[in-house]
């Protein structure tokens, strides 16, 4: 069984984001990059499947620039068998990333049975790479999964929907699954695992190696700006019962004229 896990490297959640001078992207020089947290659930799920099927092979794939601390390394340290990196800029659109992932998966020569990814990357929050990838590969996909079971050649997955309800799907493999928090508890990479990770195969490709060119770009980012600073909140004193009516009037008035929410 061949399992692929698509991971993205994203700025640490505590990063202070600064747009570049020309607004074409964000400053990446001083960013601390981490593995996209949702992708950790995908890596863990792949390793859980491997535990139950020791013959399974887990390949982690990433598209993006070379980083100071490579996210594929902790994935290998957690227990993945091999890795592939497609070197590219960090501001590709979802379509190009999906196409590059498809190309990298095909480059390995392994026929995928299960492809896992995080449901979204926490940097651009596009929530579409797994679905586009599935479409390109002609495979079924289920997103936002919080439960997983192997069921012969099929998988049974639970998917979260609005209001906390769960949908249960039985899908034939090969399949693309986009993982959500709650699916499992990702293990830590261990230090001995880290030492072993160095000896595991890691292939590196360029975008042209995997058949992606600038012509594949569907979305061009025209400007990155910080959101306007939030003004401080207003406090209203309604402790004096006699003045409460006035205060309520003021609040309603401001909600109409200033906040324009009613």
């Amino acid at each position: 069984m061949n399992i692929f896990v698509c991971v993205k490297q994203v700025p640490d959640t505590e990063t202070k984001i600064t747009p570049t001078g020309d607004g074409s992207f964000i400053e990446t020089a001083s960013i601390k990059w981490i593995m996209n947290p949702y992708d950790e659930f995908a890596v863990e799920q792949a390793l859980l499947i491997k535990q139950a099927n020791p013959a399974a092979n887990v390949t982690v794939v990433r598209v993006g620039s070379k980083k100071d601390t490579e996210a594929l390394i902790p994935a290998l340290a957690m227990g993945a068998d091999e890795a592939a990196l497609v070197e590219a800029g960090d501001n590709l659109d979802s379509y190009s990333i999906a196409k590059a992932l498809k190309g990298a998966i095909e480059k390995t020569g392994k026929k995928p049975d299960i492809i896992l990814a995080g449901k979204q990357a926490i940097d651009d929050d596009c929530l579409q790479v797994p679905q586009i990838l599935a479409e390109m590969l002609g495979l079924p996909s289920v997103s936002v999964i919080v439960g997983f079971e192997m069921n012969g050649a099929a998988v049974k997955v639970k998917r979260e929907v609005e209001g906390g309800a769960l949908e249960v799907y039985e899908v034939s493999t090969p399949v693309v699954l986009a993982c959500n928090k709650g699916l499992n508890t990702p293990r830590y990479p261990s230090l001995p695992g880290l030492m072993k990770a160095k000896k595991k195969p890691m292939a590196t490709y360029s975008l042209s190696d995997v058949g992606v060119s600038e012509a594949d770009r569907r979305v061009k980012y025209s400007g990155f700006r910080l959101p306007p600073e939030k003004p401080a909140g207003k406090k209203f004193d309604a402790t004096d019962a006699a003045k409460q009516k006035d205060v309520v009037g003021q609040v309603v008035g401001l909600l109409r004229t200033e906040a324009k929410v009613i």
Binding site: D68, T69, I73, P74, A77, Y188, P189, L191, L194, K198
Partner: peptide
């Protein structure tokens, strides 16, 4: 080294 940075990341994550 890259390895030392990875060791530090791992230990800090645990911390």
């Amino acid at each position: 080294s890259a390895e030392q940075r990875e060791i530090r990341e791992l230990a800090l994550k645990f911390a």
